[in-house]
Write a protein that binds this DNA or RNA. Sequence first.
DNA 1: TAGATTGTTAATCGATTAACAATC
DNA 2: TAGATTGTTAATCGATTAACAATC
Lengths: 213, 213
Amino acid sequence: MKNLSKRTAQRLVRCYYLAREARALGVEFITSSKVALLLGVDETQIRKDMASVNLEGVPRKGYPVEEIINRLEEVFGLKKDRNAVLVGAGNLGRALLNYPGFLRYGVRIVGAFDKDPQKYGREVGGVWVYPVEELKEKAKTLEACLGIIAVPPREAQGVADILVEAGVEGIWNFSPALIRVPAHIALRNECLESGLVMLLHEVEVIKKSLAGS
Amino acid sequence: MKNLSKRTAQRLVRCYYLAREARALGVEFITSSKVALLLGVDETQIRKDMASVNLEGVPRKGYPVEEIINRLEEVFGLKKDRNAVLVGAGNLGRALLNYPGFLRYGVRIVGAFDKDPQKYGREVGGVWVYPVEELKEKAKTLEACLGIIAVPPREAQGVADILVEAGVEGIWNFSPALIRVPAHIALRNECLESGLVMLLHEVEVIKKSLAGS
DNA sequence: TAGATTGTTAATCGATTAACAATC
DNA sequence: TAGATTGTTAATCGATTAACAATC
């Protein structure tokens, strides 16, 4: 299997979600045209995406839901359990600690860190909060392979550097700062602010197109 | 100005962030090569992006930081104040209510809604939480032009439908559900789960490429 | 002037879509 | 068999990169 492009991976993540929904409803097959409609893309695209992970469909029926789920869990590495540490126990950090949804993907937050003495030394969402000075050492002993950054932007790069030293494989950055990591570390920026700006921009675009027509 | 592609818009959002950082440091010009390095893209790309919003640079100096900020605030519609309502006052919803960062972009959450009587009838983060039955009516009286969805996936489509009826211009969907809205409504899916899966996938890809080399 | 950087045209690359044969 | 749907090749489209002239 060749590496998936980012776009393909994103569509397949959504296919995975749809397949789980279909399974929950007892549906056994799903057609590329149905998926395409829900994702707002061309149906040929979906067939190509399926083919890219060696999923085969059945003419006149569609793609087998159960196989989609299994195959994609394999491709995305969802069958492994992984430990994560979270840095920054502010509002967003606490929300993430209380979020049960990540466990479904095998990701468990096993420790949190903050520099504020008011925040460390207690539990949030079942996870102990340590002083940030202990990050490097504790991330190692907790065997964290993912680091979640929810600190203010100025501190994000420093935290990322420590996480890299501690040996994590991936960093999920919720701060708006553009951080840099070595090439062998997976990085995903989930900056909410930029998501908001993109939405505001789309609002403007639609307004303009409506005014113009 | 032609409409920006999504990719271009996303890069420009990051340029905006960098420009604000530069201004805070007292820097007056920023070169395309520096921006390109920080964003991990080709520098020609950045010059094209700048040109696409009519930003002109100065040979041997770069692009004027102040102008970047002004122009992009105009393009992205950041100079307007807008009201937003939030539906779903669970963990994630409460985190968003407590998040001060959106105000910087002129977006103020003016009301929250939940179906759980334990959650409505009080304030969270300075915002009153109403019963969800009042959503349509209240969203109108509060003059909300944005709706933020932070409810469980099963309820997301229903909430979106009500928000559309209430006349919002854009919907920011934090549930993993793929919701559908009329073409004149801006929609952005910010599904955290899918972000996590993309990160896990990248971790797998890197692992494989390191093993292969 | 020399040199760094912008701005733009042309070339390349990859992703999407169209067309249609293969299959159950 | 007829018809719906997959699977694949070719065509199109758009985005990225390369090359290089223009400018301060």
